[in-house]
Nucleic acid binder design. Structure first.
Lengths: 209, 209, 209, 209
DNA sequence: CATGAATGAGGCTTCATTCAT
DNA sequence: AATGAATGAAGCCTCATTCAT
């Protein structure tokens, strides 16, 4: 498994060869098939193991963080760390597994859902507690978070530059927060508010008029 | 090219075979090499052609949209359409090309930059005009936009459900806007000014109605 | 023809491609077949043309040289020049043509014989005139000359060092001459001579005794 | 290896096909790659194995021969045998390997040097012992020997005629010897000494009779 | 005369998987 | 339980040659 993980990380699925995996494990190709049905199976098990560790780690870490904002920040930071530490596996997950037509029937899919649920749960919780706006759409927020992180990470990692994950986490959350936090002042609707809303609407739909 | 595009879209790079591409084009494998140096070259040309069309389309579309918010929304909407209409190619771009070590020397890279520049330019422009906050980090915003779109699109498309791109565009921008828009100080803009701007916007975007 | 010659020189027969030859001639592959039956035919014609020029050149040059030794030296020097100036074609001749099973039926074979005959004729002439020993075997001498030249040339040319062909010619002839020149002193056979002959025989046949 | 040797001998490198080699070995093409990295590697190993045997054979044979002239004759005779027995491999060596740009970095190159060194060493030894002239250039002599042998062998073998290698060896050495042997000054060696040497030689080489 | 597009057979190489030992 | 040799299908690519225009 360790050998396989190493090779998959480095080469991706298609370019990884069973021969190299076996060699790196100090065994022989045939032996691999005693424990794994196929190359695909092997990759699934590698990803699953990794995912389980990741979920456990996040789960454990969250027990020590309080407050919606802080907990979201923790999730963002942790996911950024994934890209720094396990770029290869994250890649594998995105590239090879997600594209599979039968991804939704696999164990990996449910692990993926459990992992993503940490963020979704936080958002739902935040809404319930009144910290987050009642109108926000959790899926969109979650997609912005995960997608944004991936893009940032890729851009920076590919660009051979280092990645200050604390800074990036702050910036991502800083950008998103105003759009998801509850409006604390329940002021009556002033003229200004009404004009503001008007502006927004007009601009938003401007090009469709 | 069309045959190649079709096969690459469906199978990805590694799983696409020159034999299938040739067959689908109604020629023999060898003939492909009269027009393309290699499989990689073929993919590059397919992607480049597609990208050029995409850039032209966005560029043209933006000429008819006024206002930072509206222009950003247009970019988001257009990018969502990419995933609806050209999922396969978008995938190819992300999965196969970006990971290439020499991606930064390819023509595709510069096309990619030109495409992404539409959003970055808008953000910078917004900051300059005072519509967007002076402290926002354009790269982060752009990553949130593109990453968020990709995630949304994948999630929804994979789930065989349809994708209401207008709705999603509104939600994405709605979530991001508060975090990037300039904080209007109450006194800085008079009611009269704001009404004047409204009038201007409505007229501008209305022209094409 | 010039294009073909260039390409064959550079790449050898197998690695030369009709496409490159055509391209370098500024025509199209199909056109080549209007003038040459096949790739092999093309090579034959290239070699033949070259050989004819070579033969003419040697023939002409020899008219200005007098004396067996000087004429042999001229042949050696000229052949060394072939390796310096036309390494590629000489190679082609040796590698590709000689090995052909039907070489002896080709035009090239007779050209080759005409070329080699310059040396053989000189030797026979030298014997007739009494300048060369009556017992020498012309074929062996010729083989030593041509073979020796080829080896020298290869060794030196491959070794990226330059080749001082005048020096090499002198050395080759200097080494061979004592063995082929007629023994001028017709002294009576002294005891010493008889012992010397005995020594030679014993040593020569030593390992077979 | 045997199959490869056979095919390479018959067809040369470019015209040998892995398919035929595999077929002749009774295996499938892929299996060849379990034991050899590439076609080139396969050829190298075939040549190397052959060369090692050849060197061992010469080395062993020389232990039973005494005297510069006899030892040189042995080398010549042995090399002639190479062309009679292993024409194909000798060809391969000359045609395919020597022309490789990286020949000088290969194992074959050092084997080639070790083989050629048998002759060079003999010449140097002969000079030191005063049997060969102090002015002769070992490289030229060696080239004349090897080149001459190759030419003779080719000429005769191609001509489908048999090759009397003993006769040819004598003729080659007979032609070269006067040009390389030391000029014995009449007084320098007494008749008694020369008879003594003769006796010694006869005894030495006679032991194996 | 010339074109140039197309062919088709063949080249080397890789690799997941199997199976007798 | 482990081996490791063998498979066979497939992969990408090259190229001399042909033929309708």
């Amino acid at each position: 498994m360790n050998a396989a993980r190493l090779v998959f990380e480095t080469a991706g699925y298609d370019n990884a060869s069973m021969a190299e995996i076996a060699a790196r494990a100090g065994i022989v190709e045939g032996t691999v098939y005693l424990y794994f049905d196929s190359k695909k199976d092997l990759m699934h098990r590698v990803i699953a193991e990794w995912y389980e560790g990741l979920i456990a780690s996040v789960s454990e870490g969250l027990t020590r963080v309080v407050g919606v904002r802080a907990r979201l920040r923790f999730c963002i930071l942790r996911h950024l760390r994934v890209y720094v530490e396990d770029t290869g596996l994250a890649d594998l997950m995105i590239r090879e597994l997600r594209r599979d037509r039968k991804f939704y029937e696999t164990e990996i899919y449910s692990l993926n859902k459990r992992y993503a649920a940490f963020v979704t749960a936080e958002i739902l919780d935040g809404i319930k507690q009144g910290e987050l706006g009642p109108d926000i759409v959790p899926e969109i927020v979650r997609d912005l978070i995960f997608g944004g992180i991936e893009h940032c990470a890729y851009r920076i990692l590919s660009g051979r530059g280092g990645l200050d994950i604390d800074l990036v986490a702050d910036r991502i959350l800083g950008t998103l927060w105003p759009g998801i936090a509850a409006q604390k002042e329940a002021s009556s609707v002033s003229i200004e508010d009404r004009i503001a809303r008007l502006e927004k609407l007009v601009v938003a739909n401007g090009e469709e008029s």
